[in-house]
């Protein structure tokens, strides 16, 4: 993941800031737009070094398409998660078998890891406890048999990762790298 040149990073920051301005003011008045644009130019001039390292590369069509596809997939997973929660909360016997499991990820960038941790927290029965490098520690409300009965550490990680991180990684790998 190399650093993009300076102009591309600056332009990307301006675009994002201006988009946020438009959404926050929620008006298409000409004065608002001009002032917001000038303000984004000004603010971006001294925030771009820490805001992005890939610049306009973030707006690659493939990335944008995957991000668009990720939203409905994620919302669906979230609704499923909540039906699961509803079942566990309303069931009179309270069917839970919690534990903390260990997963590994293939994502490299920090933004990607953050998105993965957030996605895991909002999907069925799992919540991220800590991230240490590429190791994820995840509190799982119902640890399945294949993970519980794993003989070795490697098998445990493999089974847990297949269940928790893999489905999101195929999207996030393209979006964030």
């Amino acid at each position: 993941m190399g650093e993009a040149n300076r102009f591309s990073r600056y332009a990307y920051t301006v675009i994002v800031l201006f988009l946020i301005w438009v959404l926050l003011t929620a008006s298409l008045d000409r004065q608002e737009l001009i002032f917001g644009f000038l303000l984004s130019l000004f603010v971006a001039s001294f925030t771009y070094p820490m805001f992005t390292s890939r610049g306009l590369g973030n707006l690659h069509p493939r990335r944008v398409a995957y991000a668009m596809a990720y939203v409905p997939y994620f919302l669906w997973a979230m609704i499923m998660a909540n039906l699961d929660v509803a079942y566990r909360v309303l069931h009179p016997k309270r069917p839970i078998r919690p534990g903390i499991v260990h997963c590994k990820t293939v994502l490299k960038s920090n933004t990607g890891k953050l998105s993965l941790a957030n996605s895991i927290t909002l999907t069925p029965g799992t919540i991220t406890l800590d991230v240490d490098g590429e190791d994820y520690f995840i509190h799982w409300i119902w640890v399945p048999d294949e993970v519980l009965g794993a003989k070795t550490e490697g098998e445990h990680v493999e089974n847990a990762s297949r269940n928790i991180t893999r489905p999101f990684e195929k999207f996030l790998k393209v979006i964030f790298g």
């Binding site: 957030n118 909002l122 800590d130 445990h156």
Partner: peptide, 28 residues
């Protein structure tokens, strides 16, 4: 999710034990 993540890590670090019925604790 970020505040949930911060809270659960704070809870673990401040030494709240897992529930008796818990089956595995790789983080410990």
């Amino acid at each position: 999710p970020i505040s949930a993540h911060a809270l659960i890590r704070g809870a673990y670090r401040s030494g709240i034990p897992l529930w008796n019925g818990s089956v595995v604790d790789k983080y410990g």
